[in-house]
Design a binder for these strands. Structure first.
Length: 273
DNA sequence: AGAGCAATAT
DNA sequence: TATATTGCTC
């Protein structure tokens, strides 16, 4: 996890070392295209860029090298009325790597996880993908492939989720209670799958009585990273082109959170040990 | 070891 | 309120 992070960091450090120094570059305030030239060619004036923009761009590059990060806004499918592939980044970070530090195993508390709708969706997708009997915390955690997500996080959420599903199935009618906002934002899975060894599917007989809305997300914890493989032989490619993840800083000391692969049928990089 | 669950803590 | 933790059984 940290080893890999360090490796990547080193690579980035090398890369950065090869870049021109600030002194070799024109100041940010200086336009690269002279105004007359710009107007002559009908080039709209460049926006004024600040250090913040630079840092943002830098972080974007950084993130793309490392894979999606939870604090990256990621959208999936139809998300967000979608237009623009780039999303706003928060002003925070720069402290991305560790929350406790790799080496100092000293009790640094992880900020609590906030189950954003995106994160929850990923959870539900994974649970639906596993047969009922495989949907256990560790496996879910692995398939969700979210850096920093722990088995405990998943176990806790799963416990609540099961209660919710049971509750909803029991009372076959009646929509979710107002406190079920998160869970209600996701179609109830149909756990008909016996699922030996193989991916369940998302069938389509969900009683979908839900209202989907509101996004109020926030973020958490530090990252973890390692490799681990998981294979899933399922036949249909569900175009899980999903990303997601937006979590943002909730407390001051955390870091970025990441997940990698988008396709469950590929191996996945697992989390902890 | 880890799943599951209710109670309890924060 | 939402999530984490604990204590226990299996």
């Amino acid at each position: 996890m940290c080893e890999e992070a360090s490796r990547i960091d080193d690579g980035i450090a090398d890369w950065e070392a090869g870049l021109p120094s600030a002194a070799d570059l024109p100041p940010l305030s200086q336009s690269l295209i002279p105004p007359e030239l710009a107007s002559a060619f009908k080039i709209s004036p460049e926006p004024i860029r600040t250090m913040l923009d630079v840092n943002r761009a830098s972080h974007t590059t950084f993130s793309s090298l490392r894979g999606p990060t939870v604090d990256d806004q990621v959208m999936e499918d139809s998300e967000c009325g979608g237009s623009d592939p780039k999303k706003s980044r928060r002003a925070e970070d720069e402290g991305i790597e560790n929350f406790g530090g790799c080496e100092q195993g000293k009790a640094v508390k992880r900020p609590r996880l906030v189950w954003t709708p995106q994160l929850h969706k990923r959870f539900v997708d994974v649970v639906a993908h596993l047969g009922l009997k495989n949907a256990v915390p560790k496996t879910i955690m692995q398939l969700m492939n979210v850096e920093g997500l722990t088995r405990e996080n998943v176990a806790s959420h799963l416990q609540k989720y099961r209660l919710y599903v049971k509750r909803m199935q029991g009372l076959s009618d009646e929509g979710p209670s107002p406190s079920d906002h998160l869970f209600a934002s996701t179609p109830l899975p149909s756990f008909n799958e016996s699922s030996s060894g193989n991916g369940g599917n998302n069938s389509h007989n969900n009683s979908n009585k839900n209202s989907n809305h509101h996004v109020g997300m926030q973020m958490m914890m530090g990252n973890v990273n390692s490799e681990g493989g998981f294979h899933h032989h399922h036949h249909h490619h569900h175009h899980y082109q999903q990303q997601y993840g937006n979590m943002m800083e909730q407390q001051r000391d955390w870091s970025g959170n990441k997940f990698n692969t988008n396709n469950y049928s590929r191996h996945v990089t697992q989390n902890n040990k």
